[in-house]
Design a protein around this nucleic acid. Structure first.
Length: 395
DNA sequence: TCTGGGGTCCTAGGACCC
DNA sequence: TCTGGGGTCCTAGGACCC
């Protein structure tokens, strides 16, 4: 008899549960996190009491206000949530080194290494659940399966606050309706429904080729294991939806400047360089356009990002003669200093001026080019920092 | 009824090169 | 006068997730 070895764990109604923990007066009440019911925005999380009124994540706040007029609306305190999330992940790591955090309130654990140490995986899962709940003070749901997909779907069946183990994963999944399958969203669902398919097993029977490409890989491929990888973030973005749509270009421009400033500070604080910038505009009719372009060289400089962003914005707002609802900016092709070492010489013009300035002020040996560093076979972090930061000052 | 903000991944189509 | 086939790189946009 085979034993499930992938565990999925999920904090119940996370944001709302944190608010209740911090303010016990909210206990048992319909709590809705995301903003005020007269604001533009959507529900982040609704407590189970609020869900009884049909309120759910992603719903417009105004709609939630109508469905649940006596609901208690709170703005999110995201820094608090992320601190609790860190505690949550740290706690899980004590049970297995192979923990894959997939979002702020959700993780997979590969127990295949531990399972012989314990009489039963189920008992181990119970222990993990109890420990986490005690340490973070919130209720969690836990699923056990033979793949990430199976474990996640088991958690869904366990909610709220339960523990569910699938014994026959393939049958379990085959019987589910398609909207339960992560990765199948509204669009795909509509197409499949139009084809007369509601459950996974119907897909398998009627369109085995599609089933083989979409569902089957979860059972057999590498994707069934929790990934030990440290996921590297590939892009950073900041965006704002205005309280009211705006037409004034100066106003739009100053919002964009603020967003670019925030991004630039973030990049500098984390020692990241961006290779490309994208600007996003959403008009009053909700139509959304984006434009992107490479930066001349990897940079975190406000000015470099700003000049491209402004150019892209002007192209975007020409698209429609409508007020703007949202403006956003994103940087991609993120590199760290280390990644950039081999490419330094490409920016020789920019480099040389800055380098010479520094040499003049601090003496010839105060700074080296990357090429010199490579020749010496030395990669001391401090020196990398001097070379690269100088490069970005020269524009 | 009105639809956030932060991400990931995939695809279609054009430009360009050999 | 009619023009291949492939590969690669790039951008825009869509689908999806929490």
């Amino acid at each position: 008899m085979k034993t499930p070895f992938v565990l999925h764990i999920d904090i119940d109604a996370f944001f709302a549960a944190v608010e209740v923990m911090l303010n016990p007066y909210l206990k048992g009440k319909p709590v809705i996190v995301g903003g005020m019911p007269d604001e533009r925005g959507v529900v982040s999380t609704a407590s189970y009491e609020a869900r009884k009124y049909g309120v759910h994540s992603g719903m417009a706040l105004r709609t939630a206000g109508q469905k649940c007029p006596h609901g208690i609306f709170v703005r999110g305190r995201y820094h608090v949530y992320s601190r609790i999330s860190e505690k949550f992940i740290a706690c899980l790591t004590r049970f297995s080194p192979r923990v894959e955090a997939v979002s702020i309130d959700e993780a997979y654990i590969d127990l295949s290494g531990n399972r012989y140490l314990h009489s039963s995986v189920y008992a181990l899962a119970e222990k993990i659940k109890k420990t986490v709940e005690r340490e973070i003070g919130l209720s969690v749901s836990v699923g056990l399966g033979f793949s990430r997909l199976g474990a996640k779907l088991a958690t869904e069946a366990a909610k709220p606050g339960g523990l569910f183990m699938v014994a026959d994963e393939k049958t379990f999944i085959s019987n589910l309706t398609l909207e339960k399958i992560p990765g199948i969203g509204n669009h795909t669902l509509l197409i499949l429904q139009a084809m007369g398919i509601k459950r996974v097993k119907e897909l398998e029977r009627a369109y085995p080729a599609i089933w083989k490409r979409t569902i089957a890989p979860h059972f057999y491929s590498q994707s069934r294991y929790p990934a030990a990888r440290e996921a590297k973030t590939k892009s950073f973005s900041r965006e704002t939806t205005f309280p009211e749509d705006i037409t004034d270009r100066d106003m739009i421009v100053s919002h964009l400047a603020y967003l670019v400033d925030r991004l630039s500070v973030y990049l500098i604080d984390h020692d990241y360089f961006a290779g490309r910038v994208e600007v996003k505009a959403r008009f009053s009719d909700f139509s959304t356009y984006t434009k992107r372009m490479p930066l001349e060289y990897p940079t975190y400089s406000y000015n470099n990002i700003w000049s491209k962003a402004l150019f892209l914005l002007d192209q975007l707002i020409k698209k429609k003669k409508l007020p703007l609802r949202l403006v956003g900016v994103k940087v991609e092709d993120i590199a760290s200093q280390r990644d950039l070492l081999p490419f330094i010489s490409i920016r020789s013009e920019q480099l040389s001026r800055g380098v010479s300035d520094i040499k003049r002020r601090f003496g010839f040996s105060s700074i080296f080019t990357a090429r010199e560093l490579l020749l010496e076979k030395i990669y001391p972090v401090e020196r990398d920092a001097i070379v690269l930061k100088t490069a970005s000052l020269t524009k």
